[in-house]
Design a protein around this nucleic acid. Structure first.
Length: 645
RNA sequence: GCGCCUGUAGCUCAGGGGAUAGAGCAACGGUUUCCUAAACCGUAGGUCGCAGGUUCGAAUCCUGCCAGGCGUACCA
């Protein structure tokens, strides 16, 4: 049993019959921020002053008198205004760690009540190269899948790719007018990407010719749930008229949607190539999906959604468009019978993210006046499919925060349709910005390609790996191939980590130097800590399996040993807090602390040259647990370790 | 106008009721006959945007203001 829940239980027992609200007070048991206040602290004595009418320190003493933690902690101490400070007993730490040695899960228990999650993330437009804007959704979503799964939840990952939008109209138009047949036969993906860029450029030029206000509107506002052809399209905010290339592109798109045989055939020919392209990137990133059901999958389900909304009186026509309004329509919450939300398993997941009531001036449009459907329509059809197919308790959308209004509307509409027994959660994240505080672009104004970014990260990693290997006291030990393999892992890890370590809600300023930095709070720091542990085992010729089976006792006498041990047992707390608000940076912060503790331990406590054989065995066990925790933690972030670097 | 987000050290950011607000980078000073110095130890650096309020306790919650970003009916 993890320590924090155990402590809470003990306090609950102590407070039972003493205070009115033991369950609430128990939440004030938490890890101490400063080791001098012990490992954990209980802060409920102060707020209980009013209820019990006694000074907090007296209350604290009463609680301690009723508290049975003798098997877990040293004698609790009262400090300051009435804090109860708890210091874990060394023998408890030792027992807990000893149990973790033989445990694949490192002492982390699966949740008591598993939930079923559908996680919607990445969602690129497949007809064009992936770029920097896709990193966050892909990396955060992948990590959340991994952590939730590890905790025992049922997780279905679904990549809702944009495979039906205007970008295919662009490629169709390009294919029909500017195809380089030889290039296409040689490398279809590359040629399609060229055509995409060409048509994109033509459209942009066309709109900047027609629109003085195009400045600032021509951004390729990639959002991860669909196409990004906003700008410069006939629907641009400047009211430009569709003409020339733009009109032609829209016409090709419309023909595709209407079932035009030629366009459907070409679409069917392009799509596998496009998918190969993104698959290659996913393979390199180590990201996979259970399902890839894109927009096209829902194409013939959209009319039903609209009909449903209309026939149930949930949508009405306005200016020729079919809309769901949120400006006064009664929702279940308003009628009083607030929607029944599933009980939240304790310590498991975020507050229910459904929108019990939501008012918006703007409606959600589900059918345009020209009869075409919008992404809200597709998203509703997708919800219906997911609910019927997987019956999830929660659906997470890992999507740019700029779409928050869309998701509010979507969730409210889904609730109107009766999907009110599920947690809808927009796991939003900030924008990747350039130095200028604007969405990140290259100097020429293009979006930054994801593959180029990976290459650059790996290139920089290779330089550092090589320099470090050359500087080793006994000379280099890595072959050129090995260096390259390591650089691949280290480079991609640094890229992912730079994203994951950020609080996802804030925008972040992209910087090659920061993202690819190999020192400080980076994946590299942890990979390095891991490699140093493994180096000890290699150098000492240690048989890890035998070590684990040996039953050698762990001792925690040195401060650095104890500090490391305390950090090790907090792994499950880190995972819990990651999942509470779907924030992987909780896990990166933990791993950084752990690697830090290990580095201190590494400096202060010699392992192979320990004073006694027993001490050496004990420290090897600590090393093993550290290595496994780092490896597992990084794995849950989608990051791989290396044995040497 | 309305809605959402952000404002914390020189820079980039954690922390989102608990004790003296933290880290990385940059700066300065130490540590290698010793398991990987991509490391470790230390010093310096902050009216937590401003003003009120709630509380035993506020960077954290509430209200108002200031500044920035994003969104705001037929793109996604």
């Amino acid at each position: 049993m993890s320590i924090l829940p155990t402590l809470k239980e003990r306090f609950h027992a102590a407070l039972q019959g003493m205070v009115d609200n033991p369950a609430e007070m128990v939440e004030l048991v938490r890890p101490s921020q400063d080791p001098k206040f012990g490992d954990y602290q209980a802060n409920m004595a102060m707020p209980l002053k009013k209820q019990l009418g006694r000074p907090p320190r007296v209350i604290a003493a009463e609680i301690i008198a009723r508290l049975d933690v003798a098997d877990l902690c040293e004698k609790p101490e009262i400090a300051g205004p009435g804090f109860i400070n708890l210091r874990l007993r060394t023998d408890w730490l030792v027992n807990h760690l000893s149990a973790a040695i033989g445990d694949e899960r490192l002492g982390v228990e699966p949740v008591a009540q598993p939930r079923t999650f559908v996680i919607d993330f990445s969602a690129p437009n497949v007809a064009k190269p992936m770029h920097v804007g896709h990193i966050r959704s892909t990396v955060i979503g992948d990590s959340l899948c991994r952590v939730l799964r590890f905790l025992g939840h049922r997780v279905t990952s679904d990549n809702h790719i944009g495979d039906w939008g205007t970008q295919f109209g662009m490629i169709l138009y390009g294919y029909k007018n500017f195809l380089d047949q030889a290039a296409y036969e040689r490398n279809p993906v590359e040629e399609l990407a060229r055509l995409y860029r060409l048509v994109r450029k033509m459209m942009d030029e066309e709109s900047s010719r027609h629109t003085p206000c195009a400045e600032g509107q021509s951004d390729d506002n990639e959002t991860s749930d669909g196409t990004d052809e906003t700008s410069g399209s006939a629907h641009g905010v400047c009211g430009l008229q569709a003409s020339g290339v733009q009109a032609a592109v829209l016409a090709e798109t419309a023909k595709l949607h209407a079932g035009d045989a030629e366009n459907r055939r070409l679409w069917g020919e392009f799509l596998p190539n496009c998918q190969d392209e993104i698959s290659r990137v996913y393979r390199r990133l180590g990201v996979s999906f259970d399902y890839t059901l894109g927009e096209s999958f829902y194409h013939d389900r959209l009319a039903t959604v609209v009909d449903d909304l209309l026939s149930r009186g949930l949508a009405r026509e306005s200016d020729g468009a079919v809309c769901v309004f949120f400006d006064g329509m009664e929702t279940p919450a308003e009628k009083g019978d607030s929607p029944h939300l599933p009980e939240r398993p304790e310590g498991c997941c975020a507050q229910m993210g459904t929108v019990p009531f939501f008012r918006s001036e703007t409606p959600m449009i589900v059918r345009k006046k020209d009869g075409a459907f919008l992404y809200g329509t597709t998203d509703l059809a997708t919800i219906r499919y997911r609910m019927e197919t997987w019956r999830p308790d929660a659906i997470l959308y890992v999507v740019d925060h700029r779409q928050s209004l869309h998701f509010k509307q979507l969730f409210a509409a889904a609730q109107l349709l009766g999907y009110d027994n599920v947690e809808f959660q927009h796991v939003s994240f900030g924008t990747v910005l350039g130095d200028n505080g604007r969405p990140f672009k290259t100097r020429s104004g293009d979006t930054v390609g994801l593959e180029g970014l990976l290459d650059e990260a790996v290139r920089r990693a290779l330089e550092i790996v090589s320099a470090n290997d050359d500087a080793k006291p006994d000379g280099p030990e890595l072959s050129a191939e090995r260096r390259q393999q390591i650089a691949e892992r280290v480079g991609i890890a640094s890229l992912k980590y730079a994203d994951l370590s950020q609080n996802r809600t804030s925008d972040y300023v992209f910087s090659y130097d920061k993202m690819l930095a190999m020192t400080g709070n980076t994946a590299t720091y942890m990979q390095y800590a891991y490699a140093r542990v493994r180096s000890i085992f290699a150098r000492g010729g240690v048989d890890v399996e035998a070590l684990r089976a040996s039953g050698s006792p762990i001792t925690l006498n040195a401060p650095a040993e104890r500090a490391l041990a305390v950090e090790l047992i907090r792994f499950s707390e880190a995972l819990d807090s990651t999942v509470v608000d779907y924030r992987p940076n909780q896990l990166t912060a933990y791993l950084f602390d752990l690697a830090n503790r290990y580095s201190t331990f590494f400096e202060q406590c010699h392992v192979l040259r320990a004073e006694t054989e027993e001490l050496k065995q004990s420290r090897l066990l600590l090393c093993d647990l550290t290595a496994r925790t780092i490896r597992r933690g990084l794995e849950l972030l989608g990051i791989e370790v290396v044995e040497k670097m």
